[in-house]
Simulated assay, not measured.
Amino acid sequence: MFANPVLRLLIGRLAIFMAALGILTLLPFDLDPLLRFVIAFFVSMILSVFLLKRTREQVGEQVVTSVEKRQAKKAARKS
């Protein structure tokens, strides 16, 4: 879908949040809109831990790779 794992993670988190907010909006409870946002935030945060685990690991690998490249360039400049 998206080549960049950071972009995939961002879109995945937003999609989970919007789905949780949509479900809370459709429920017949009379909740304050701010409370709906807060509940949707916490539900999406918990769900994203499990649903986006693989993508989060890919982002971590990408960060480690870029840090290692940057350190290698810095070491090469010093030598």
Rank of each mutant, 00 (worst) to 15 (best):
L31Y: 07
E61A: 10
Q58D: 11
K53Q: 13
Q58I: 02
L52Q: 12
R54V: 11
L34R: 10
F50R: 12
V49M: 15
D32S: 15
E61C: 01
L34V: 15
V59N: 07
G60K: 08
K53H: 13
A20V: 02
L21W: 01
E61P: 07
S48Y: 08
L31W: 12
L24D: 04
V49E: 15
L47A: 07
F41P: 00
L31I: 11
R56Y: 09
L27W: 06
V59Q: 04
E61Y: 06
V63T: 02
V43I: 15
R36T: 04
A40E: 01
D30C: 00
F50E: 10
P33G: 12
L34I: 14
A20D: 06
E57A: 13
M45H: 01
L35Y: 07
I39E: 05
A40T: 03
L51K: 13
T65A: 06
L26M: 12
D32M: 15
I23A: 09
F50I: 12
K53I: 12
D32I: 14
I46F: 14
G60C: 04
T55Q: 03
L52I: 13
L31C: 07
L27M: 10
G22Q: 09
G22V: 10
V49D: 14
F29I: 06
T65S: 09
S44Q: 08
L47H: 05
L52A: 10
L34D: 12
S66N: 11
L35Q: 02
I39A: 06
S66G: 01
K53V: 13
D30P: 00
